[in-house]
Computed example of a mutant assay.
Amino acid sequence: MIRLLFLLPILLCFAWYCFLRTNGVPIKKGKKGFLYILAFSTFVLGFFALMIQVTHQA
């Protein structure tokens, strides 16, 4: 499951792009949304990486 987390930002950005196109919003105006998606995805991936390190038993 963890190995598939790289798909999270790809799918969210694609969904955001589809939302912008459907509502006729230019990509330049929706740029902030892409940044939020990337920041959120980085946080989630970092959290899971940290949890793997914390719970890893030698």
Results as ranks from 00 to 15, higher is better:
1 M>S: 15
1 M>Q: 11
2 I>S: 09
2 I>R: 11
2 I>P: 04
3 R>E: 15
5 L>I: 12
6 F>A: 09
6 F>M: 11
6 F>Q: 13
6 F>W: 13
7 L>I: 13
7 L>W: 06
8 L>G: 01
8 L>V: 15
9 P>S: 04
10 I>D: 05
11 L>E: 11
12 L>A: 14
13 C>L: 07
14 F>G: 08
14 F>V: 10
15 A>E: 15
15 A>S: 13
17 Y>A: 07
17 Y>P: 00
18 C>P: 05
18 C>K: 11
19 F>D: 15
19 F>I: 14
20 L>M: 15
20 L>Y: 12
20 L>S: 12
21 R>G: 04
22 T>E: 11
23 N>E: 14
25 V>R: 07
26 P>N: 08
26 P>G: 08
27 I>V: 03
28 K>L: 11
28 K>P: 01
28 K>F: 09
28 K>E: 10
29 K>N: 14
30 G>K: 01
31 K>P: 00
31 K>S: 02
31 K>L: 05
33 G>W: 00
33 G>D: 01
34 F>C: 00
34 F>Q: 00
34 F>K: 00
35 L>G: 08
35 L>D: 02
36 Y>K: 00
37 I>C: 04
38 L>M: 09
39 A>G: 03
41 S>N: 10
42 T>C: 12
42 T>R: 02
42 T>E: 05
42 T>L: 09
42 T>I: 10
43 F>I: 12
43 F>Q: 01
44 V>T: 14
44 V>K: 00
44 V>I: 14
44 V>C: 05
44 V>N: 02
45 L>V: 09
45 L>Q: 11
46 G>D: 05
47 F>C: 11
47 F>D: 08
47 F>K: 07
47 F>W: 14
48 F>G: 05
48 F>D: 10
49 A>S: 12
49 A>G: 15
49 A>E: 12
51 M>R: 10
52 I>W: 07
53 Q>I: 15
54 V>F: 03
54 V>A: 07
55 T>R: 06
55 T>M: 07
56 H>W: 05
56 H>M: 10
56 H>G: 09
56 H>C: 07
57 Q>A: 04
57 Q>S: 06
57 Q>V: 13
57 Q>H: 06
58 A>M: 06
58 A>E: 06
58 A>P: 11
